[in-house]
Amino acid sequence: MYRIVRREEIAPSVTLFEVEAPRIAKRHRAGQFVMIRPLESSERIPLTVADTNPLRGTVTLVVQAIGKTTIELCDNLGVGDSLATIAGPLGNPTHLGLPGKPDDVLGTVVCVAGGIGAAPLLPIVRGLRARGHRVITILGARSANMLVLEAPLQASSSELLVCTDDGTRGHHGFVTRLLADLLSKTWADERPIDLVFAIGPPRMMQACSEATRPFEVPTMVSLNTVMVDGTGMCGGCRVTIGKETKYVCVDGPEFDGHQVQFDEMIRRQGMYVREESRSLELYREHIETGCRAVPQAAE
């Protein structure tokens, strides 16, 4: 089950996995995610589905190795291996129309991807284009070698703007800068920006939402809270949207960026920093010494 049929390093510490999961491949819509456990001992972690191939019955995941679970996944699993769990598709599909307008009203949508955010953004870009919207994609990363999925984004967007923090490719600077430029340039245009999607690190999504706020351009962000089940039964993924509590896994993962309490969400993401670094430390020791230096548990 859940066999890995393709694996590719697409950037430093970023690995693409194509995994057999026919039911999920058939049902998945842009914006939805899956919960996976790489190994039997693993934590359940959410990952966005970047692509599907319903004919092959596969889904594509793009994973950034940042902690124990993702590093262990990228270190250990290759073609022919299987994931212990992949459950989904979870969350709501992206609404691919303009907010508050009938579906057949077309417009200009700016899609902003920060780093690995390109993966969840790709099916949204494709979906929007398939509906006939004009899509300007802004793809940013720290450095040229960290840009992911540039080619498919280029192919599916009406226009692609690239930027890097260090100027090694495209514009020199943050995605927010490009976004702000676009907003002010088109402000008085005949074809103003109708909608923005921003997906990437929380601070980047927050900055994009702040950039669009004065222009009153609706801005959707995809939140990445800590999750356990992904089906609405633990409440661990709760966030405050406006004044209301919402569960990212069942009410989201996309929300109106102008309503999201980002500072609170970012704080909650750090709830296990101590435990996570301990876990990673032990894993690294294990890699180095070949034995897992884990204290004997109580049973």
């Binding site: 934590e43 124990k68 039964m233 309490q261 704080r267 109580a298």
Partner: peptide, 30 residues
């Protein structure tokens, strides 16, 4: 309720039982 350190019993018990967090860091879920 949005503070760090606040759980539903469901989450607390699921982490401990189903995910085996009482054996962390031998298991992965804290």
């Amino acid at each position: 309720e949005q503070l760090n350190g606040v759980y539903s019993a469901n989450e607390y018990l699921t982490r401990a039982n189903l995910m085996g967090a009482y054996r962390f860091p031998e298991t992965d879920t804290p």
